[in-house]
Write a protein that binds this DNA or RNA. Structure first.
Lengths: 340, 340
DNA sequence: CCCGTGCCTGTTAGCGTTAACAAGAGTCCC
DNA sequence: GGGACTCTTGTTAACGCTAACAGGCACGGG
């Protein structure tokens, strides 16, 4: 005659344990001032009923949800995917859930919608994992009382960021080529509107300028292996004298190497190639790729650190300078001494 | 003297519009029986106050949250990452939020914890994106009234699944080698405990058996490029007569090719290699990789379809057979006729 | 003219939790 | 013995929304 047993609620536990529902709440929230004996009774009752607390109700009552929202652009890409993965684990360890909203097109309006949805969910903090210029504007428009962190974010006022030092990484990569004796060094840039693409371009330019070498126009690229391949063809055609290339990410680097190989150009014998990212398979490509390693796991963790700190602090926060995770050049076999 | 303006709630909108809060609710939920004029007034009031509905309160009142939970193992891997990405977009289009929980170790207990957390959040459905044997047990233990879908899931009773036809894909790959005249064909398997690894092994065996060819022990692998490289070394050492290899994923295939190249073995001249996954850069490796394409975007979309249907249906669902997304062999340059 | 039937709106009562307050019991000290 | 604590528990009122019910009004048919 009975319905299927509904999920037990606090009141049920309270009744079974012979206490008030508030006492159950106290046990759940580790309040001091609960007698050990009472706590045991409540715990036993919870176990017997298979009680699970309703986090929705909790969130409503506390006006705080212990959920971190993530706004991401393309979680398929190596960097965002890796960051998201470690971020989720770090968040869980800190007691937070993670809710992800991806933004298919990097238009400000789409970002704004994403923020709205997250706010409607009463998230207690937001991570912006969209390293585009368009995302920067959005952060400026974030509700002032909502803690936020940007990954690789530009200088949005009031929003702290966690970044891998892109300029420095590009400097390391380019200097490496210079030290090997290369003097004609090209660059394949990442997608327009991406901050990382600009920073890597910057680093490359700085290194060349510091060494007194010529700065060519960067070859266009969109992060994809295909665009790297196209850039490779273009390179041969336009600047056959180039012997070193700093490519803005590993996927494009691999496309570039393939184009060069097809054209009969030996890497690293005739042309040296450096990538960026250090994707998992970089060490197993032909040739093994020299590249700049980025510790995305660390980035994810630091994001949570910063965000949790902001959530904890009730007063107005100061902006502070970005948390910088260093990049590290990994020398493998795609670079060698300049041919003479 | 005033505090910073608190976020407006329904009552505020109602007051400004001169109606009851229930009418505001009706407008928000597209109820019939709201006069056009009233609707306009309410909408105007909402716009003026910048009202955002509180989804937490809504979820509590409706006892339903419009959130889909995803339990994933490693969202860094190509397949899960791609599936998750399209799933999130499809879910949003269907009016759902997505909450992700990753499980660092594939132990049943860890999966069970993940389910608990999702249930506590009152998610209205769950996608299990963890293609391991350990995850199958967990699905059997899912609350009976919680709609669920498994991706690449085994035969958990009552839980529908969306799969790419792995066995068929492996058959296509292996047959391709056979048709090219190869008779000594090895296999590098994926990580133990993964259902996909088993299915691909199966397909390989079936194809060989059907053709009357010898079935060797599969070489061990764990999906990583490194393990593919190791398998390549092992292969040369153990079975120098092998001329065709079906490798369970592209990353291992690329490691294998590198190992062979180092040993002076030409691909595809002396040994043909087929991968599985069709990662974005597969066409730009050296040589371009013949592989089996999986349409993960479609998998994500179908997951949402199935889940939404289950959520809508109030009565007990029948299990039905899995939704099968076909795999497709993409022939590139890493395979060629068997040498004689 | 009354009653039933659409339309439209308001009132009330939850949803399951936490917060705020109240209050009783025990302890300690003067 | 009384006041001021600390420890422990219970009662009540939110949190912001939706669901259920109860009207009021206009219209049409018997």
């Amino acid at each position: 005659m009975d319905e299927r047993p509904a999920r037990p609620v606090m009141a049920d536990v309270a009744q079974l344990a012979g206490v008030s529902h508030q006492t159950v709440s106290r046990v759940l929230n580790d309040h001091p001032y609960v007698k050990e004996e009472t706590r045991a009774k409540v715990l036993a009752a919870m176990a017997e009923l298979g009680y699970r607390r309703n986090l929705t109700a909790r969130a409503l009552a506390r006006r705080q949800s212990d959920t971190i929202g993530v706004i991401a652009f393309d979680t398929t890409l190596h960097g965002p995917a890796s960051t998201l993965f470690s971020l989720e684990q770090a968040a869980r360890a800190a007691g937070y859930e993670v809710q992800v909203v991806t933004v298919p097109d990097p238009h400000p309006q789409a970002f704004a919608d994403a923020v709205d949805r997250l706010v409607a969910q009463s998230v207690c903090g937001v991570v912006v994992l969209a390293p585009q210029r368009a995302a920067v504007q959005v952060m400026a428009g974030l509700p002032a009382d909502l803690p936020a962190v940007a990954v690789e974010g530009g200088a949005a006022p009031g929003v702290p960021s966690v970044v891998v030092d892109q300029v420095d990484g590009a400097l390391q990569a380019t200097r490496h080529l210079i030290e090997l004796g290369h003097t004609e060094i090209a660059h394949v840039r990442g997608r327009q509107d991406w901050l990382e693409a600009e920073a890597r371009l910057d680093g490359w330019q700085q290194a060349l300028t510091a060494a007194g070498l010529a700065v060519r126009d960067p070859l266009p690229g969109d992060w994809s292996a295909r665009s790297g391949y196209d850039a490779g063809l273009l390179l041969r055609d336009r600047w056959p004298e180039v012997t070193g290339v700093f490519v803005a990410n590993d996927h494009m680097a691999l496309g570039m190497i393939r184009a060069l190989a097809e054209a009969g150009v030996d890497v690293p014998g005739q042309v040296s190639v450096v990538g960026f990212d250090d994707i998992a398979e970089a060490g197993y490509l032909r040739p093994p790729l020299t590249t700049v390693h980025q510790d995305f796991a660390e980035v994810g963790r630091r994001c949570v650190d910063v965000l949790v700190e902001r959530i904890g602090a009730s007063e107005r926060w100061s902006t502070g300078c970005p948390v910088v995770v260093p990049g590290r050049l990994v020398v493998r076999a795609s670079t060698g001494p300049a041919p003479r």
